[in-house]
Amino acid sequence: MGGGCLHDSYKGGALTEVMFYVLLATFTPRHGYAIMQFIEEKTGGRLELGAGTLYGAINTLAKKNWIEPCGEDQGRKKEYRVTELGRRIAEQELQRLRGLTQVAGEIIGGNTHE
């Protein structure tokens, strides 16, 4: 894991919500369907990922080395797990979002609501 690579990602800015949720889902090793279920459950059905979109997101994250396939592959569904790099990216994103919700809270007022 090169520092340069991390630095690039650090400057990369905001993640999309889909990417961030897929990343979060893999903090516990999960296969495709489990990732879909996780996201649907955590968002109360607000974010429902199509299988094709999820497939693209998984491939993108794996290519960036933010997640990796794990466990025995034979006859079982392929599971993915967040990498050390992915974990740091997720932490940075959390910081960014905290900053954002704080500003939004100050301006809109009170607790966040629709």
Binding site: L49, G50, G52, T53, G56, A57
Partner: peptide, 9 residues
Amino acid sequence: FELHTSYED
């Protein structure tokens, strides 16, 4: 039933 859901995808 949709396989592609995000605009980017």
